[in-house]
Amino acid sequence: MGKVKALVVDDSKIMRSAVKRALDQLMLADFEYVEAMDGQDALNKFNDEIQIMFVDWNMPNMTGVEFSRTVRDQGGNDHIPIIMVTAEKSMGKVDKALNEGGANEYITKPFTADKMHKTISRYFDDEGNIVGEECEEEEEKSFFQSILKS
């Protein structure tokens, strides 16, 4: 199964554990976790090894939407899925997270493993890799190959 490095951001240790437990239950990939307790902590821990992110909204220091927007504004990471995992439910909030924040998906608390699966399974292939990374790698390879041939 493919190894996937996931950033889990929530000021609640219990919720971070709940997210990890649900992901481990799903067995979509062999997850390695990096945990952060607020948006600022997540920003400090975010790097190009992170392949998927699960982000709460209401946190001290920096909210999940602010973190998501800041990461997207850095550029070069649109291929990394950001999943908002939050108690916020109103349509305006969903819209804000997806459009302003640049998140890809939205899942409300409390969630079941089944709900998590329905939300994120499309980001994984059968080998447990994040979908989209392989496509990018193939495109890069063929690009360099075409340079070498010319």
């Binding site: 609640s12 919720m15 209401n58 916020e88 439910k89 109103s90 909030k93 608390k109």
Partner: peptide, 23 residues
């Protein structure tokens, strides 16, 4: 501390539902 964390999180979930409802 985990108990405080849990109750805080339950409060958070409730407030999210209340906010959506009273809107």
């Amino acid at each position: 501390d985990d108990m405080g964390d849990l109750v805080g999180e339950i409060s958070n979930i409730l407030a999210g539902d209340v906010a959506a409802n009273v809107e």
